[in-house]
């Protein structure tokens, strides 16, 4: 039954008409936690202004993969990358030793599993990335904060209390605030790590709608453990299992007629 509903939600979607331009491309990417090889020779292309979803059972390495893109693994000792992730159009390898992870994170932004607003006001949360980049002009900050909050569909709810603490918002609002924070710095690629897993269905629906909207502005890579969600929001889907990328393709094709038996088993619910 689940497959039927997934398939129907995919079928009704119009195909993206614009030509596909690669935004980031992982090739031969392996990742090690100490001696443990968590990712094995992954290849993946993320196309500009598309939503690409990473699905797979728990522990398959999808979050690990996502965190390679903005070098989050550099924060902890003993981690090691192999292979490359190239960012276009500049054609730079994000994983190259000479590339500063802070520079990488300036251009890619991330939304986490659990909403993680900072202990600051709503305004200061959204302005955080801009301030980190040295923006001082009050007018520029106000303009960009407002634009980001509008893009994150939060402006109307918070415009009268911008200077209240962000903790007073509901879970769904906090997550949209985190999306606004990630949007405010005009990222080239946004990484979403199971952004709705701690939210109720209504908040989830609003975040999904938002993600589908945002792809006009920004390229999106999203990790989700929810296949319906992948089917609803993404244009491309990659199925991962045990640190390997099993199948990658257009979401409609992958969900309706997967080429790989393992993928089929997973999306039909026989496995996973």
């Amino acid at each position: 039954m689940a497959t039927v509903s997934v398939a129907s939600s995919v079928e009704s979607r119009p195909q993206p008409s614009a030509p596909l331009v690669p935004k980031v491309k992982a090739s031969g990417l392996s990742f090690y936690y100490g001696a443990f090889r968590a990712l094995k020779e992954l290849d993946l292309v993320v196309h500009e202004n598309c939503v690409t979803a990473l699905i797979g059972p728990s522990g398959c390495g999808k979050s690990t993969f996502l965190r390679c893109f903005n070098r989050m693994h550099d924060l902890y000792p003993g981690n090691r990358y192999e292979g490359e992730i190239r960012l276009y159009p500049d054609d730079i390898n994000l994983l190259a030793p000479g590339v500063d992870p802070i520079e990488v994170r300036m251009r890619l932004s991330m939304v986490f599993q659990k909403p993680n607003p900072f202990p600051k006001s709503i305004f200061e949360n959204v302005a955080y990335g801009l301030r980190v980049r040295g923006e001082r002009s009050g007018r520029t900050l106000e303009g960009k904060v407002e634009a980001a909050l509008r893009d994150a569909a939060l402006w109307s709810e918070v415009k009268d209390r911008l200077h209240q603490l962000a903790f007073n918002l509901s879970g769904g609002q906090q997550q949209r605030l985190c999306i606004a924070r990630a949007l405010a710095t005009d990222p080239e690629l946004m990484l979403f790590d199971e952004p709705t897993s701690s939210l109720d269905p209504i908040a989830t629906a609003s975040i999904e709608e938002l993600i589908a909207d945002l792809k006009k502005k920004v390229t999106i890579l999203i990790v989700t453990h929810n296949m319906q969600q992948a089917a609803r929001v993404s244009d491309f889907t990659a199925y991962m299992y045990l640190g390997q990328l099993i199948e990658f393709g257009r979401t409609d094709e992958l969900f309706i007629k997967p080429k790989n038996k393992q993928t089929e088993d997973y999306i039909t619910g026989r496995f996973g």
């Binding site: 924060l75 520079e103 659990k114 202990p119 980190v132 980049r133």
Partner: peptide, 27 residues
């Protein structure tokens, strides 16, 4: 202070020092 708060700051391109002073200390 939970790690995900720090990660949120690092992901915005903040340095260690910015994260410590602007996020961890207030938290």
């Amino acid at each position: 202070v939970p790690m995900n708060l720090r990660e949120g700051s690092y992901a915005m391109g903040a340095t260690r020092f910015q994260t410590a002073v602007k996020v961890v200390v207030p938290a």
